[in-house]
Amino acid sequence: MKREAFIQASTRVRIEEKGLLTKEQLHRLTEVGSVDELNRILAETSYQQEVAKMDRPEDYEQMLDAELRELYRFLYEVSPEPKLIDVFAARYTFHNLKVLAKEILQETDLSAIYVPLGDLPIDALKEAHEAGTLHRVPVYGEMLSALLNDFSDKKEPGRIDVLADKFYAQRLAELAEEAELELVDTYAKDAVDLYNLSMLFRLKKMEAPVEMFQEAVLTGGRIYQPQLISRYFDTVDAIAGSLYGQPIGDTVREGINRYEETGSLSSFEQAQENHFMRMAQNAKMISYGPEVLVSYLISKETEIKNLRILYVSKRNHMSQEFTRERLRLTYV
């Protein structure tokens, strides 16, 4: 990608960055006692317009979804290379692919959990499935057909997620290669490695057979698959030690420490997201270029996730300490 092509886009993104919540603002939001108070403070920030549209304080999910849609709309508008944004939108595409497969198999309306992002042609795939012409829908028709056929053969619902994640990893690697940007390549490889390690720890906790991990492990990361599989029966500490010097080594250690403190693998997920936020923070010094857009995208998505954590915490009257422990790093 030509860095000079991103000068105008970088300027517009830097303006939008000024609307990101600061660490101090996030701390203030953590201290409020109710959703009403949370909305009142957010109404003084860049979220003012969306908060004003809320009919009820509890309608925060619609507000946050609208913010996420607007983020991608804006970045697709300003980016001279849409494929740069495609890299990050892909996970929503494959989330929707999983939902669609389950909707067809369960014969249940799951439209409420589709995400209005990504490029999955949901209606076209539904029509093609009913007509028996999935093979005519480019790319995703074959993928959906593979998911449905696998369930028909194995009758294991959990395999839908496993196979869809494999399709996602393949697509992510393709998009990262097309982007020709070191930051995106790093993101794609780290995402695969961290997914594999998260799956390894999850299956070990379940005392699942190693064959389940062999089936689930993704390609496309820096860590060689056989190396990961050979570590399946090692202790968690030994696995972390084997990653010393790897780009994700410190993140894995952070995730393991959090996991040992809480007993919850969501703590490992938190460490993963902090890893990508540090990537975004490292791009702060770049004046212009595609990295500026990627950095803002990661930062804004993380901010939206933090707000969702805050809303859930306030609605369920959780303690400030409980909430702070679950918040992700901030960009500002």
Rank of each mutant, 00 (worst) to 15 (best):
K204R: 14
E156W: 13
R222A: 03
V217S: 07
S230H: 10
Y259N: 08
E303R: 01
A188T: 05
Q49L: 11
D250F: 06
L42H: 10
A179S: 15
T93N: 01
D153Q: 15
S111N: 11
F276E: 06
I309L: 02
S264G: 02
G19Q: 08
L42Q: 10
T235Y: 12
V332R: 08
L203N: 07
A216E: 14
L68G: 01
I304W: 05
Y168L: 12
I256K: 05
F167Q: 08
D250R: 09
E260D: 13
A146S: 15
R278P: 00
F88C: 06
T262S: 15
A101E: 11
P157C: 08
N196R: 07
E303K: 02
T219C: 01
S145K: 15
M277F: 04
N257M: 07
V35H: 02
N39P: 06
F6Q: 04
A128V: 12
D55Q: 13
A101T: 13
A191G: 00
N282G: 05
Y72G: 04
Q48V: 10
Q214G: 15
E156L: 13
D185V: 10
D59L: 03
P116A: 03
V332H: 08
T330P: 01
K284V: 04
D193G: 03
E31D: 10
L172K: 13
L125A: 06
K305W: 00
V35D: 06
R326G: 07
Y187H: 01
S145F: 12
K155G: 07
S266F: 08
K284D: 01
I298S: 03
Y296K: 03
I239Y: 13
M318F: 06
T251P: 03
S145V: 08
V162F: 07
D153M: 14
I248G: 00
V78P: 06
V78A: 06
V192T: 13
F268V: 12
R253S: 09
A5I: 07
L181D: 13
T45N: 05
T11E: 00
V99I: 15
P138M: 09
E174D: 15
N282E: 13
Y187N: 00
E4S: 10
M212V: 14
I104D: 11
E303I: 05
E254I: 01
Q225Y: 05
E142G: 14
R315W: 00
R171E: 15
Y288P: 01
L307V: 06
I286E: 11
E67Y: 04
L120G: 09
Y311L: 03
K126G: 08
M318P: 01
L163K: 12
L21T: 04
P82Y: 14
D250P: 02
L38W: 05
R91W: 05
E44C: 00
V236S: 14
M277G: 02
R278T: 06
A188P: 08
M279H: 09
V99A: 03
N96P: 04
L117S: 04
F74I: 11
Q214S: 14
F213C: 09
I104Y: 12
F268P: 09
E254Q: 09
I113R: 09
P80F: 07
